[in-house]
Design a protein around this nucleic acid. Structure first.
Length: 259
DNA sequence: CCCTATGTTCCCAA
DNA sequence: CTTGGGAACATAGG
């Protein structure tokens, strides 16, 4: 479920709660999520984000890499108590517990060496160069929306924010990436920064079950312009928001003002 | 039974 | 070899 703004919200909250704290023990309840070495006594040095993945640096060369995929959630609680359904692992600290809950079991957890952090593609919040995007899109016939969601090109954008960004930029998500003009790439670049920064400030989009580290809803669902609004009136031009499918994902856009 | 779901990866055909 | 589309992964909810 989580995209860049949701993961960035988790990162900030995790950093505040975990930095400098020592791990008492780690328990994995679902082997499918991954395996862990003995982490007893390890200290959290930093929490970083790489696209939609979280890195928990544990000093030395050791780090945990966590990816929430579709339904993963992290929950911090000061006290103990019964584990929620679908809890996949737990890290215990003197100050509380960090639980990972993931109904669909797509999330991944791995212990890795810090140097294995091989960030190849730039973070969507760092991309400010329309010319660079246009170059990357050169010759590509795939829909511009699918292009923006390709984590090998740039990282962090998922289905909701791809829809919102293209709406903000007034570009039709079906357009072949290579057909997008420089002016349109400029609009997309600006929309990307605007939408993602605002969504981070709102601590993400709680459309169904996204909750932050402390179980709180985000606020960006109140500011969505197209996502999940099919059949409703476009706030910009009065047209009707349509839903189509691109790359197997529900895609929302306004055919009258996104060209 | 059908469809949908904030993600990634694999397979296949062109 | 590259590109793009679709299925698969696993589970819950409407």
């Amino acid at each position: 479920m989580p995209e860049l703004p949701e993961i960035e919200s988790l990162r900030r909250q995790l950093s505040r709660v975990l930095k400098g704290e020592n791990i008492g023990k780690a328990e994995v309840y679902d082997r499918k999520i991954g395996r862990l070495p003995d982490l007893q006594g390890r200290t959290v040095a930093a929490v970083r984000r790489e696209g939609k993945a979280l890195w928990v640096d544990l000093g030395g060369d050791l780090a945990l890499r966590l990816h929430m995929r579709m339904s993963g959630r992290l929950l911090w609680r000061a006290g103990g108590g019964a584990r929620p359904a679908h809890t996949r692992f737990c890290l215990f600290f003197r100050t509380g517990e960090l639980l990972c809950v993931d109904p669909r079991r797509f999330a991944t957890l791995e212990a890795r060496r810090t140097e294995e952090d091989t960030a190849a593609a730039p973070d969507a919040l760092q991309v400010k160069d329309a010319a660079w995007l246009q170059k990357a899109a050169q010759g590509r016939r795939l829909p511009v929306k699918t292009f923006l969601m390709d984590q090998r090109i740039l990282t962090g954008i998922g289905n909701i924010y791809a829809c919102e960004i293209l709406y903000d930029a007034a570009v039709d998500p079906h357009r072949a990436a290579r057909s997008v003009s420089r002016r349109e790439w400029r609009r997309i670049t600006e929309a990307m920064a605007r939408v993602l920064k605002t969504a981070v400030k709102c601590r993400g989009t709680s459309i169904s079950d996204w909750r932050d580290l402390h179980g709180e809803k985000g606020e960006f669902q109140n500011r969505l312009q197209v996502y999940d609004r099919s059949g409703q009136t476009c706030r910009r031009c009065g047209g009707t928001v349509q839903r189509t499918v691109l790359g197997g994902r529900g895609t929302y856009f306004c055919p009258s003002c996104q060209r």
